[in-house]
């Protein structure tokens, strides 16, 4: 198996952040998705939405300036941008189910070639925590997933059919892994951008589902 260098978490977050456009309302999930907020402009050009009812939040506060009542959906301290607002959970999810959130960026365990996502229950755990991810899968206009390409023991996470319990069916449109950027199309996965130094054949060998390669395959760049 190849020991080539994969994309760093920071580069994955930076690249995915470029898919977020001015005017979008964006929800960032717990874990790696939260890193994306380090690479977006905090000038109000896009609106960050959190399940716990913070709308229009900004970057992590400086040390010593944390407000105990100002946290994101992961419980991490945040700041509020000018024009930010607070709503209840019920209203935050009205925004999600009602189609007012443009993009949800979620972590993943597996994504299938149909765009199914599994991310809430990790075997052999008997219990998992779906949080707001199930709601985001049906409500957000687009769902992007950021995850490592393979499991710790080298098994592919881009699969033909998810074997883990689903979070949402046919909901994912884009996947960022440490080997590249993948579009979910009606024909399955399409490799759009690849980690520097890797070949499509190498990525394909670590992908369970069939993988098409775009006509203009480029490397993921910082």
């Amino acid at each position: 198996m190849s020991e080539k260098e994969r994309l760093s978490r920071e580069l994955m977050a930076l690249r995915l952040a470029r898919e977020l456009k001015p005017g979008m309302v964006v929800n960032l999930g717990i874990g790696m998705p939260t890193l994306v907020s380090d690479y977006i402009p905090h000038d109000g050009s896009l609106v960050l939405h959190s399940e716990n009812g913070v709308i229009g939040f900004g970057p992590t506060p400086r040390e010593g300036e944390e407000d105990p009542n100002l946290v994101n959906a992961g419980g991490g301290f945040i700041t509020l941008l000018p024009g930010g607002a607070f709503v209840s959970h019920a209203d935050a999810f009205a925004m999600i189910r009602g189609g007012h959130v443009d993009v949800a960026v979620l972590g993943g365990l597996q994504v299938s070639e149909q765009g199914d996502l599994a991310n809430w229950l990790v075997p052999p755990r008997a219990l998992g925590s779906p949080g707001g991810a199930v709601d985001l899968c049906v409500g957000a206009k687009q769902v992007f997933v950021v995850m490592e390409h393979t499991t710790r023991d080298g098994k592919p996470r881009l699969v033909s059919r998810c074997t883990y319990s689903l979070t949402g069916a046919r909901c994912v449109s884009l996947v960022m892994t440490d080997l590249g950027l993948f579009q979910v199309t009606p024909q399955g996965f399409l490799l759009r951008e690849i980690a520097p130094g890797w070949t499509a054949a190498e990525v394909r060998s670590l992908t369970e589902a069939p993988l098409a390669v775009g006509p203009e395959l480029v490397e993921v760049r910082a």
Binding site: E51, S88, H89, A90, A92, F93, I96, R97, L127, G128, S129, P130, G131, G132, A133, V134, D135, G139
Partner: peptide, 8 residues
């Protein structure tokens, strides 16, 4: 176990 929006 209930999805969060469904819970609220």
């Amino acid at each position: 176990t209930v999805p969060q929006g469904t819970l609220s």
